[in-house]
Amino acid sequence: MEKVIVHETAPVTLIGGGEVAVSDLREALSLAPMLIAADGGADRALYLGSQPRAVIGDFDSISEQARSTLSQSLLHLVAEQETTDFDKALRAIQAPLVLAIGFLGARLDHQLAALHVLAQPHVPPCILIGANEVVIHVVEPLEVDLEPGAVVSLFPLSVVTGRSQGLEWPVDGLVLSPMTRIGTSNRATGPIRIETDGPGLLAILPRHSLGMVIAAMLARRSRLETAQQIP
Rank of each mutant, 00 (worst) to 15 (best):
I5F: 11
E8C: 13
V12W: 08
V12Q: 03
I15S: 02
G17Y: 02
V20A: 09
V22R: 15
D24N: 07
A28R: 10
S30V: 00
L31I: 04
A32V: 09
M34N: 06
M34P: 05
A38W: 01
G41L: 05
G49N: 05
G49S: 06
S50K: 15
S50P: 00
R53Q: 15
V55W: 06
V55M: 09
I56E: 08
D58E: 03
R67D: 00
S71K: 11
L74A: 13
L75G: 06
V78S: 11
E82M: 06
T83N: 11
T83Y: 09
T83I: 02
F86I: 06
A89S: 15
L90C: 05
R91Q: 14
R91Y: 01
I93Q: 12
A95I: 09
L97H: 04
A100H: 01
A100S: 12
R107Y: 10
D109V: 10
D109R: 09
L112T: 04
L112W: 06
H116T: 13
Q120F: 00
P121V: 08
H122S: 13
P125D: 05
C126Y: 01
C126W: 00
I129K: 10
E133M: 05
V134C: 13
V134M: 09
V138E: 01
L142M: 05
L142N: 04
L146E: 02
E147G: 01
P148I: 06
V151G: 01
P156R: 07
V160F: 04
S164K: 09
G166V: 07
L167T: 11
E168V: 13
P170S: 13
P170D: 08
D172R: 07
G173P: 07
S177L: 10
M179A: 14
G183M: 12
T184Q: 10
S185P: 02
S185R: 10
T189K: 14
T189A: 08
R193V: 07
R193A: 12
E195P: 04
E195G: 07
E195Q: 13
G198V: 07
L202M: 14
A203I: 08
P206Q: 02
R207W: 04
L210I: 09
A215R: 15
A216G: 02
L218P: 08
R221G: 11
S222E: 15
R223M: 12
L224V: 09
Q229M: 10
